[in-house]
Each structure stands twice: as structure tokens, then as C-alpha cells.
Computed example of a mutant assay.
Amino acid sequence: MIKFRKIFQNTKHLAGIMTIKIIGQFRAPKFSLPPVVLLSYPRSGSSWAGKILATSPQFAYLREPITQPYMKKYGGQRPVFLTEDDHPDITTYKHLADNAFAGRPSLYKGGVDNKYDFLPFSKNKAKRLLIKEVNPGAADFFCKRYQPFLLLLLRHPAAVALSYYEQGWLNKVSSSNFDEWASFGRLYGTFMAGAVRTINKYDGSKIIKYEELVKDPRQRFLDLFNSCNVEAPKNFDAVIEKYCHAENEVSSGYQTQRNSKLTSEKWKNKLNKQQLESIKKGFLETTLPFYREAVDWRLI
């Protein structure tokens, strides 16, 4: 019975999204400008941060509306790449991005928090799109094509590398010159440095460090709501308690309810010195101007 109910609920949800997409072909929903993009490298905490930001009653939230269909439907090889005109998938990527920034949701599970935010006939005041994405190589493309307010989320490369390792993804980034840990450190630093360069020449943007968010989530998220020119939810304190001070540490997976401070420092307990030195070696070959001091790399 429980399994049947879940299948029914998923089918009902997908049918609702499909209806919205069909209607949207004839009359697109109206959204306030500019859209807000929360951009990070995969496994950097953007699902958690996006979930909290999405509690604003003025946001209509789309979670990875480009990456998820690109990888699952169109056979994309990797989520992070430079969106240049000579990339073989650029036409598909642009099509998915155009749909996302027009507020046309994808059909994959988990992509939409509230499908009613995307109804074209809503009488409520127009909301602002909040799009969470995980391809920092697309930062320049997003800024030039859609002029969003861009939030770039950084996280310590060792924390992201550990999460990749726990997901079984780390061996996919190794190169002939480095082991898999160093290869990841260099890859992360290279893509995030490029995104930071875009941020530095683009007015509508803000850099966020995950470690600063978890240190004082209440104040930091209030600052982000203010930067995005939207209201915090009326139950904001309860939101922070739910998503930042949960009892579970979240060792891996995609949960957004967590003890965020414990999660941010997990790499200090899980990685050994050799792994950390490898990540650091690859990372320091890049120009990303964060996490470069010796104190940033201390294990517990």
C-alpha cells in the first residue's frame, strides 16, 4: 500500500509538471527580474543552501533544471564543463538553460519545490526565480545570456573531494600527472577560479563561503535574503533549526537537514595526511584566491 501510494504521488506530481509545461508553451509565467542563480561545484552544499533560500515566499525554486536533464536524459558525460560554442553539447545545454530561465520546469524528480509557483495564470504577485546549478564552468555563459544575480558558493576543496570519494566519483577525475586526490584539487581550483574571475567583472554577484554560512547561519542567510532583495520566511528561526541544527551529521548522500557545522569539518577527521597533501598539491597549482593559507589545511 505504501509503495502504491508513493507511485501514485510521483505520477501525480509529474502529471502536474507536464501540464504546467504544456500550458507554458502558450502562456509563459511571469517572474520578477533579475533571476537569482545559486552556483557551485557539485557536492559543495548548494542543495542545502538552496533549500533554505527557497523558503522565502518570494522565490520560485528550481533545483538543477539544466544539469539533471542534461545528464539523465541527454547523456551528458560530466556536469562540470566550459560552456563554449565548440562544445558538442552546447546546443542542448542552451535549450535546457533557456527553459530554466523562462521558468519551465524539468520533469525529473526533485527539481521543483512547489509546482504552483510556475502556473502562468497565478493572481499572486510575480515571484523571482531561484535557480540552483552545479556547473561553475557556465558562470560567464549565465551572466552574459540571462543577467542574473549570481551567488557563487565556495567550499574547501578537501571537503568536496571527500564527498566525491564517498559517492564513488573520485576515480573519474584522475590524470596521468597526479593521483586522483591531486587531480581533483586541481580540477576544482581551476573551475572555481574561472567562476571567480567572472564574478569579479560582473556587478550583480556575491561570493559565499560554505564555512562562513555554517558558522553563523542565521545572520548569513538573512544577509543573503537581503542581497537578493527578498523577504525571509516568517518562520525563519524554525527553518534554521531544521536545516542547520539537526541531530544527524550527514556522512554522505543528498540530505538537506543536517548539523551543518559538523558536516563542514568532517574532512578534518576523515582524510589522512597523505590524501590531504595530494589535494593541496593539485589545488595550489590553480589561481583560486581562497583556501591558500597553511591554517586552511590543518587536520584535527
Rank of each mutant, 00 (worst) to 15 (best):
K172R: 12
L152I: 01
N200V: 04
S183V: 08
S260G: 03
A232L: 09
Y146C: 03
F236T: 08
A193S: 13
K242H: 12
Q257H: 09
E249T: 15
G189I: 01
E166S: 14
A139Q: 05
E231F: 12
W169S: 06
S176E: 15
L222R: 14
Y146S: 06
C143V: 11
L151H: 02
D216Y: 07
F225C: 10
E211Q: 12
E247K: 14
E211G: 07
K234W: 10
E211L: 10
S260Y: 02
D216I: 09
L151G: 04
F184Q: 01
Q257R: 10
Y243A: 03
L213R: 04
Q167E: 15
P157Y: 00
D179F: 09
F149S: 00
F178Q: 09
L151I: 08
D216W: 05
V173K: 00
I240P: 00
D203C: 10
F142L: 14
E212I: 09
I208M: 07
A138E: 06
N248Y: 11
W181Y: 09
L213K: 04
Y202D: 03
F178P: 02
F184L: 07
Y243N: 04
K234C: 14
Y254I: 13
V173W: 02
L213Q: 02
N229V: 09
W169G: 01
E241D: 15
A195M: 04
D140L: 15
R145N: 12
D140Q: 15
D179A: 09
P217F: 02
N259K: 05
N248H: 11
A246H: 12
A161T: 08
F221H: 05
S163L: 07
L224G: 11
Y188R: 00
Y243G: 03
G189T: 03
